[in-house]
Amino acid sequence: MEIIMAFVCGFLFMAAIYLILSRSLLRIIIGTGLLSHGAHLLIITMGGFGGNNPPVLADGVTEYVDPLPQALILTAIVISFGVTAFFLVLAYRSYQELKTDDMTQMKGSEDHE
C-alpha cells in the first residue's frame, strides 16, 4: 500500500507543479492546494499503515496506527488552510488592483538600468 501511495503522492506533486507553472493565478493556487494534499498524504504514508486501529484508546486493542504523523498532518493542514485563505484573498485583491490574473503580465520591472 505504501508503495502505491508513494506513486500517488508523486503524481499529486507532478500535477501540482504543472499547475503552478501555468499562467493563471487560479490554476496556480489550485496547484498549491494539490501540493499540500500530496504532502499530507506523503506524511501519513511515511508513517506507515501498519496497525489496524485508529490511534484512539479502546478496550482490548493494542495495534494502533502510528499517531505521530497524524498529529503532524493536522498541524500542517491547519497551516496550509491559513496560507491558502491568505493566498486567495491576495489573488482577489491583486485582481482588483492589477486587473489581471495572468502571471506573464505580472513581471514587474526588474530595475535594470
Binding site: C9, I20, L25, I28, T32, L35, S36, G38, A39, L42, I43, T45, M46, G47, P69, L72, A76, I79, S80, V83, F86, F87, L90, A91, S94, L98, M103, M106, G108
Partner: peptide, 22 residues
C-alpha cells in the same frame, strides 16, 4: 504583484520542507 511570487515560492518550499521531514 511581488507578494504573489514571494508567497508562491514559500508555499512550495514549505511543502518540500514537510515532506523532507517526513
Amino acid at each position: 504583484r511581488e507578494s504573489i511570487k514571494y508567497i508562491l515560492v514559500n508555499v512550495i518550499s514549505s511543502a518540500l520542507f514537510v515532506i523532507t521531514v517526513a
